[in-house]
Amino acid sequence: MRLLADHPHGRVSFVETRHLALLDRPIEARGELVYIPPDRLERHTREPREESAILDGDTLTLVRDGRRRAMSLRENPSVALLIGSLRAVLGGDRARLERDFTINHAGTPDAWILDLLPREPELTPALRRIHLVGRGGQVERVEMIETDGDRSVIEIGDARS
C-alpha cells in the first residue's frame, strides 16, 4: 500500500471485462483512467462508446451522449464500494480500504496480490470480494467478484502522461 501511495498514478489505460451469467460471452470496455489526488477519479471510456464517469468526492457524474447524470455515492452504496475502492487503491488510501474491507496480502513488494473482503457484506450483498494484482507501485489488475458468480476484471496498462 505504501508503494501505491508513493506513486500516485496520473493517467493509465484500462480494459474492463465483465463476465455476466446473463450473457453468452464477456463484454469489454476500453479507455483511460485518470487519478487526480486526493479524491478525483476519471474513467474515460473510448469503446464501445464514448463515456466519462467522474468520481469527485461523494459525487459520481456520468457523461454520455452529452448528457450529465450525477449520483451520490451515499445513496448507492454498491457503486460506492466498487468505484470508491478503485479510487482508494489508486490513491494508496489504506485507511479507506481498511475501513471497508479486511485485507489479505501475499507476494513480494515487486509482485503482490491483495485480497479485499467487505467488512459489512449486508451493505453490498452483490459483492463477494475484490482481488488486486500489482507490481511495485503499479496496480495491474483489479478483479471484482460478485456473489452471483458475475465478475468484472479491470486490466490497467502502463502509466502514460
Binding site: 455476466l20 463484454i27 470496455a29 462508446r49 456520468l62 454498491s78 457503486v79 466498487l82
Partner: peptide, 9 residues
Amino acid sequence: DWLVSPAGM
C-alpha cells in the same frame, strides 16, 4: 453498453 459502465450494476 450500460452494463460495462460504472452504472452497470
